[in-house]
Write a protein that binds this DNA or RNA. Structure first.
Length: 329
DNA sequence: ATGAAAATAT
DNA sequence: GATATTTTCA
């Protein structure tokens, strides 16, 4: 690591500010800043907020009244919007610093002629304690800190970011992947969405896309051998059972339900097959996850120690920006 | 952005 | 040589 050129817009907190009392001691700040600080100060902390993901109406009840299930993306959007707002606020507080004047939105980019639509890149703003615990490092998911690669020693002054080490899909990671895919339903499970819901720092869309490709192949191959018989080579995929919601076609459990089939005049020999009634929601209603919320904490800590080394992204102490964060939201 | 195939890395 | 993951391509 070459030492910093000294000039980082490190917002130093005064000792007094560090204590939880005098945050608004703005002797060097302008009036606007004071207002903003006061506003921010008055916000409830993340712990004080009632989780949005808690449905007031049970899924069953909602289904009975034809109320569509809450969209998961909504919560994500809220989260993102919040982050965006905070970023903007901070930007207003210190607009200068690194980019004083007419700095082109695209400082330097790879010479890829294909990469043209990458213009929109909301630079990630470093968290200042507010909701900073939502994103996890892959190594953290592994629950094994010893596997942390010493550093990405591949320093590069030339502006080229060193290729990030290849991702290893450990059972923990895969589990999370499967969970998310299951919630989305196999139809809606596309790389970008999966990536977002997995909420793993350092995980790229390409990573997910690749894994998804393989996973689909696995599922297909699985159907072929109707009798469960994961090939001996499917170590990883076999480690996490395939949720029913992903198994073949949606099962009849989503059918208007609770209403005996006789009511519909359906011959009971059909009872074992798929019933042709409103099944499009099948994958989303009763797939075994009554209240799934986008991953935010380690509630999956399975403790398995496959802990293979994931040399991927780590979060630098004071800056969530990895040099070449490709994340465009 | 996505899915599939080709290319690499392990 | 077989797999796992990345990169390229449509």
């Amino acid at each position: 690591m070459a030492e910093d050129s000294g000039e980082r817009d490190s917002v130093r907190l005064h000792p007094e500010e560090d204590a939880d009392g005098g945050v608004r001691d703005g002797r060097a700040v302008h009036g606007d800043d004071v207002r903003v600080l006061e506003w921010v100060d008055g916000l409830p902390s993340g712990e004080d907020l009632i989780p949005l993901s808690q449905p007031l109406v049970s899924p069953e009840l909602a289904a009975a009244f034809s109320i569509p299930p809450p969209d998961l993306k909504t919560m994500l959007d809220i989260h993102r919007a919040t982050q965006h707002t905070i970023c903007n606020l901070r930007r207003q507080q210190n607009p200068s610093k690194s980019s004083p004047a007419a700095a082109p939105p695209k400082p330097f980019s790879a010479a890829d002629p294909k990469e043209s639509s990458t213009s929109q890149k909301p630079s990630r703003c470093p968290d200042q304690g507010l909701e900073s615990s939502s994103m996890e490092t892959i190594a953290e998911i592994e629950g094994d800190s010893s596997s942390l690669p010493t550093e990405n020693s591949a320093e590069d002054n030339s502006g080229r970011m060193p290729k990030r080490p290849r991702l290893v899909w450990t059972p923990q990671l895969h589990k999370r992947f499967v969970d998310v895919v299951a919630h989305l339903g196999i139809k809606n499970a596309v790389p970008k969405t999966i990536m977002q819901l997995m909420n793993v720092d350092g995980l790229t869309r390409e990573n997910v896309a690749s894994h998804l490709q393989k996973y689909r192949l696995y599922l297909k191959r699985m159907q072929g051998l109707s009798n469960d018989g994961p090939s001996s080579s499917d170590h990883l995929f076999a480690s996490t059972p395939v949720p029913q919601s992903l198994q073949e076609q949606p099962m009849p459990y989503a059918v208007p339900t609770m209403i005996p089939m006789q009511v519909y005049g359906i011959p009971h020999h059909h009872a074992h097959g798929v019933v042709p009634v409103n099944n499009h929601l099948a994958g989303r209603l009763y797939n075994g996850f009554d209240s799934f919320q986008p991953y935010a904490h380690n509630d999956w800590s399975g403790g398995s120690k496959f802990a293979s080394i994931v040399s991927n992204a780590h979060v630098s102490p004071n800056d969530n920006n990895r040099t070449g964060e490709k994340r465009k939201q």
